[in-house]
Design a protein around this nucleic acid. Sequence first.
RNA 1: GGGGUCGUGGGGUAGCCUGGUCUAUCCUGCCGGCUUCGGGAGCCGGUGACUCGAGUUCAAAUCUCGGCGACCCCA
Length: 479
Amino acid sequence: MGARMKHERWKNNFSEWFDEALWNAKIMETRYPVKGLYVWLPYGLKLRNRVLAIMRELLEETGHEEVLFPLLIPENLFKKEAEHIRGFEGQVYWVTHGGKDKLDVRLALRPTSETSIYPMFALWIRSHADLPLKIYQIVNIFRYETKMTKPLIRLREVTTFKEAHTAHATSEDAKAQVRAAVETYKKFFDELGVPYVITKRPSWDTFAGAEYSIAFDTLAPDGRALQVGTIHNLGQNFAKVYGLEYEKEGGAHEYVYQTCYGISERVIAAAVMVHGDDLGPCFPPRVAPVQIVIVPIPFKGEEKSAEKVAKRIAGELKAAGFRVHLDERDLRPGRKFYEWERHGVPLRLEIGPKDVKQEQVTVVRRDTGERFTISLKVVNREVRKILKQINKEMRARAWKSFLNSIRDLKDLGEIKKVMDARAGIVRAPWCGKEACGKAFEEKTRGSVLGEELNDKRMKGVCPVCLKPAKTSVLIAKTY
RNA sequence: GGGGUCGUGGGGUAGCCUGGUCUAUCCUGCCGGCUUCGGGAGCCGGUGACUCGAGUUCAAAUCUCGGCGACCCCA
């Protein structure tokens, strides 16, 4: 592991690092002239599609069906859920005109789709036989952010919002669905090698209209928590507003119990940051737009032979299903190495005179910088093994560094120090009372992520009221 | 919600304080050529910018106000 795997800029100048990483890797174009809107570039879009493919696979295999609802929601429907709208009030874009005519009914650009989907649920759900109903869609949503915007992280148009909505006959079924969604999301983040903590959000930070909310948070290199997924148990709150009743076996009617859960392109930001180093991103082979780049090293007299072998290997690997790019440009090899490293391509194959002569190929890992050779005869098999290994090791490294950034503390002053230093997540004992939870936030300047789902309780007393702790909370500076 | 800094070719910048000599600096990229090729090569030629609007002034990249945009801090 050499100078190339440094994490100095990555850690100490994270904000700049992130913008440059997106630019150098050609993921996003950030110069679109409207605040908070960005352009997906071809390479970035390929990455996005890989990530979405995993998402779709996981949802389909757990019985969700994909749908696509309209972007526009009429004001009357939108405002029906008074409590819900309070959550997005002031953040909604309105369409007020059609051509030169002022619209009688204003249309909201969806900030999320509950208010457009649930009225349709009311038409679709008649009896218990229609339940459970599990759908999802991957759409863009609009939120009028007044704060600073940041590509992939804080957007006015979230271009990639996966939202699942389910309806169930009983409260128990809805709760079970929440647990199932947690499991699905775990698998999803594991595929990306993105580490996380799972918390039950505190009462004062619950999604408008939800009974309770569960969230996944990861950690940015600057020590701030980044929420990358949320799961809500909506109980019958929306069902009552939108009249989602079903007929039970005995003929009685009851409101359905609902859940919804979402993940956005923030998860791509997370993948970029947790696996990055000073050179830029390094994508796990599972989602890398290009998994293997092949660079032929030409040499005097026999320019063609390296090229020929490179072409053959590229063809073989492609046929075996790998995403391969053969870089035949007339540039010096060093330049190509550098460029592909900045694109986060996890594996590079070099084929030069020595390699051709010895019937081998030189292999370089992006994540570790490790360099070695493998025989041409077994390229296919070896590459498969190495990519798998890289996936595994990248995930393990990310988790290790993540867990090192979570510390158990029992003193408010010490917690505040961690918050001020942006040094990660703190676990602290908690009596469970809302007043004490809010006091945590006031006295440490951090945000309470919530109560950890895996029940890692800390012993001791609540540092605010000094009464015995019933549970523990996670606290962090957040995005 | 409050406060601050900033905006110069595709990217990064010098110049601005103290208006004129700016026909706007340098690095990089990009295009063409030569030469090279196992870690960002070199040489020659070329391309390309003062965020927008209003104002002050004989004169504005430079000063004033506003819009749009970027970044930072605090609540």
